[in-house]
Design a protein around this nucleic acid. Sequence first.
DNA 1: GTGAAAGCGCTAACAC
DNA 2: GTGTTAGCGCTTTCAC
Lengths: 343, 343
Amino acid sequence: MTAHRTTTAKDVAAVAGVHPSTVSRSLDPLRASLVREETRQRVIAAANELNYRPDLIASGLRRQRTHTIGVLVPDLGNPVFAEFTGGINRRLERADYTAILLETQNQHERFQTGARLLSERRVDGIISGATRAGDRRTLRQLVQSGIPVVMAMRWIRGLEIPIVANDDLRGGALAAEHLISLGHRRLAQLHGADDIETFRERGIGFHGTLARAGIDDADQVRYAKLQTAAEARKLMRALLQACDEPPTGIFAHNDLMAVGAIEALKEQSLRCPEDVSVIGFNDMPLTEHLAPPLTTIRMPTAEIGRVAAETVLSMIDGASSPAVTISLQPRLVVRGSTAPPRR
Amino acid sequence: MTAHRTTTAKDVAAVAGVHPSTVSRSLDPLRASLVREETRQRVIAAANELNYRPDLIASGLRRQRTHTIGVLVPDLGNPVFAEFTGGINRRLERADYTAILLETQNQHERFQTGARLLSERRVDGIISGATRAGDRRTLRQLVQSGIPVVMAMRWIRGLEIPIVANDDLRGGALAAEHLISLGHRRLAQLHGADDIETFRERGIGFHGTLARAGIDDADQVRYAKLQTAAEARKLMRALLQACDEPPTGIFAHNDLMAVGAIEALKEQSLRCPEDVSVIGFNDMPLTEHLAPPLTTIRMPTAEIGRVAAETVLSMIDGASSPAVTISLQPRLVVRGSTAPPRR
DNA sequence: GTGAAAGCGCTAACAC
DNA sequence: GTGTTAGCGCTTTCAC
């Protein structure tokens, strides 16, 4: 193997017969006009000849800009977050920014080390898509260190940090309205983890809409630690055992939980949607191909990513951190897992 | 907003009453032994007090190591690649490395700009998980520039670049063996894109095993441009129209295509598995909850990521690039979408 | 065991 | 218009 030294601006300068700073100017679109056209052409020719790639690390050190955004997500295996990061990536790309994606696995310790890593890498901004109740201090420290931070998808209250998220209150309400309008009165929730505001909002939105219709689901809410099919199945079993008459409508806080619920129903020879209607959340891939195809709430996930990126970029440019909340609207996707209750 | 200056080694040095180079030594585990214990404690105290975070950018510039690996994937929305990057991330983390993930969307141009971006960021190594036939030149350039490169998941022949991948030849063979052993003789393939070696291998593995059993599927192979359910549905329709007697067994090159195939069968009132067996590939999330639950081939995706990361790290350390191919073994997951053919 | 000096590759400020 | 100089924050010689 040849000992490799990457070509630098100095090398290009030597070939073009100019000073390194002229190389720098010629190659930066913003300052190219400062250079005589003829000189610039010579530099570009030399750069191409040597296959020169400016060192963004060195440039970043000098400019105090890394053109990098740190993104914290709970888990890339979750298709919702894959879509979210897709939205971020597409927006950042247009601005010549790159994302560093870190998975927290819903663990505060990983959130914390992730945050530390990102500040050591001097990212220009951070999008926290994995925020949970326990992360408050860490987020406050980030803000205090002067780095622009945005909470997206998941968020907590009482921080001076912009929020870009789905309107989960509305999402829960949509689910309730749908089931009520079908004629359901005995309703239950398979509730996501209690320390994630997203799920609390979904729960409140659902509960509130029920209350306004004179329905109470207070005894019929079961909380999951992890929003998996397996855990939902257990919760659903317990729910069925605990009540004389099973509910006729179930709101599961995500699609995997809805799937688990339907399986638990099958175990008890209850059919979906004939005996019990089930509605999920997220509209993840393949849900339309399930039996029955899942009725669910779809949120504008990629759009949330896009707007979150936009927001953090504007904070990097503009001075002030607008402590705003941007709510994007979810919508109901009706498929086969919900139907009117049996007479 | 306060104008923020992040604290530097110089600041810490001032507080601890030492020289910046002593700060550097004290905080690097490898060189901490060069510093008197008492001094080191003073430095650490000062660093904590000031909440000092060493600047990895500056450190990288000096050491000519960014502790960053670039990873090119076709699409993070594809759960297989989410799992793959998970495997990479977990391994890199242990080595204090960070990944930069870039999505190519299966477009050569994006592969190329991605590669350029990664070299400008001076990543210490690259894992190409998105390799397609057209990317040969770009990969060769990367190698020539002296940067360690590994092809994982997807790969092409004839490059002096290590390969870490699923044994797709074996995967295709597993699918064939399963269908043959159930008693199927009329078989067809819904084949993934022709410019991705992965799919060619699956096709050859399937075809070869059939041939050895005296079965020919040559007329019964339909090629997709994109491996989606929608496209598979169309291909399957065409396939059914083109033949008098439909095949009794279908090998779809991924799970989405298998789902599309099953839907096309339903349109023609053909049932799966009673009339036609369908086997997929990947074992993506929710496949076990489909109706029927999908029989599929599972590959050790996270493990491929882990080994790819391991390989690129060893190339960064050790000098030579071992032009090896590491094949990991897939396995058959039998569920409900395959059964013996009807008499 | 610690300090001083130099330099990684780039670019901003200044000089001419 | 282009060259010169200096410095981003760190680490690595080399002194002492």
